[in-house]
């Protein structure tokens, strides 16, 4: 459904919003009494009773028993981060620009960089404190190289408030890359996974 009509909060003929029909409030005691009598004998109370009894009889249970059953999550779900590699070469996509570190509103990303033997900036360590991370997704959004994305791992139970993931936890292992297990983030510049893709989707 198109969301535009819902954006118009003004009540009108076109809008799906409408005023609820509210009875005028009784002012005199006699009116109040009449209202009580009306409500008592109109059987509104029994409607309520019937509704819940009907649901009990239908026994249409909506509960998901979480640890045993899990709901499928959306591909853009923002769970624990991943660092991706370039499809073509297997190099790390991260260039160490530090934008994720800068934009992080809970200040939980830190990285160490140095100059490597090829005069390139090398990220030696990368850590996210999941105890502070609010999974807002800014880091993934700001990343110019599509290097940091959110993965699907959302179970972060930990014995400590400060719970870190480091580069090794997040970086796609090379054998996963070769076996095609690195999932692409289906956002800006994404590729369709079923094509035999070899190119990293960096839109220039």
């Amino acid at each position: 459904m198109h969301s535009e009509p819902l954006n118009d909060r003004n009540v009108s003929e076109q809008s799906p919003y409408f005023y609820v029909d509210i009875e005028t409030y009784p002012t005199t005691s006699w009116d109040k009494f009449k209202q009580v009598v009306k409500r008592t004998f109109k059987g509104e109370l029994f409607v309520g009773l019937w509704v819940v009894m009907r649901e009990m009889i239908k026994f249409d249970i909506h509960t998901v028993q979480y640890p045993k059953e899990k709901l499928p999550i959306g591909p853009r779900y923002r769970a624990v981060h991943k660092l991706l590699r370039l499809w073509e070469s297997g190099y790390e996509r991260c260039i160490g620009c530090g934008l994720c570190e800068k934009i992080c509103i809970s200040d939980c990303i830190r990285m160490d960089t140095k100059i490597d033997e090829n005069s390139r900036k090398e990220v030696t360590e990368y850590s996210i404190n999941l105890g502070r991370c609010i999974f807002c997704g800014y880091c993934a959004e700001v990343c110019p190289e599509l290097a940091i994305v959110h993965g699907q791992r959302y179970e972060n139970g930990s014995e400590q408030r400060a719970h870190f993931v480091i580069k090794d936890d997040m970086l796609t292992p090379l054998d996963w890359l070769t076996s095609g297990q690195q999932a692409e983030f289906p956002g800006f510049g994404a590729i369709t996974p079923n094509e035999s893709v070899t190119k990293t989707p960096l839109a220039y």
Binding site: G96, C97, G98, E101, K102, T113, K114, I115
Partner: peptide, 9 residues
């Protein structure tokens, strides 16, 4: 200093 840090940090 090269490539060890960003100025804004």
């Amino acid at each position: 200093y090269q490539y060890t840090s960003n100025a804004w940090e």
